[in-house]
Design a binder for these strands. Structure first.
Lengths: 102, 102
DNA sequence: TTGATAGGCAAGTGATTTCTTGCCTATCCT
DNA sequence: AGGATAGGCAAGAAATCACTTGCCTATCAA
């Protein structure tokens, strides 16, 4: 249950979702690279520490995994936790009748 | 984008997720019925207005739909918005290699 | 019509969250 | 060694959020 808490809490912030988008586009980015992408591509005026904190939240949720190499820390997207989300409520009404498009 | 905001914000709260669970189990519940279920089954001490506000958030996210009948207002779960969640990040790495279970 | 039931609105409070600022450590390059 | 680069920690300000309290409206049953 605490897992679900972390996961949904992580997804609740728009900036964090944008970070996931960026990591989906290119994995293995460093903190600075993510910072500059948020700034340039998304006009998000946010400090480096702000981004760092967001990454920590994403990592706690298991959505981002990191690996250290020397002074660099690379961030990778892990979509596995996302699969459990929809299962929670989608499974019961299993058949999932496709949208009728008359 | 505002749609995603509402959706993820709605899912971020544990009480709201529990409400979705209850609606998944039995659809068409009234506010009072949901209140008593939260209280009895989940030991959640929350006021009627608290639950009402949660339902409003869920409705804004499209996760709950309502229909009025006389003085009753029935709440139904709508899982459609959930499907878009995973699509956002799950689609790119499409194949989704099934878990190796040796 | 009166009382009871189902629900709604709005202001205020307390708790979380987001974000910044300031300082610190570790690694690399010259 | 010294400077530059990548990242981390922590305290505090500001914004959001969850929740309550108090009062109000609408529907139904007697």
């Amino acid at each position: 249950m605490a897992v679900a808490d972390d996961l949904f809490r992580a997804l609740a912030d728009r900036t964090r979702r944008t970070i996931l988008d960026e990591l989906a586009e290119k994995s293995g980015q460093t903190l600075f690279e993510i910072c500059s992408r948020l700034s340039v591509k998304h006009q998000l005026g946010i400090s480096r520490q702000g981004v760092s904190q967001h990454l920590a939240v994403l990592e706690a949720a298991g959505l981002v995994e990191t690996r250290r190499e020397g002074r660099y820390k690379f961030h990778d997207l892990n979509t596995a936790p996302l699969r459990r989300i929809t299962e929670r409520w989608l499974v019961p009404d299993a058949p999932q009748p496709e949208e009728s498009t008359p």
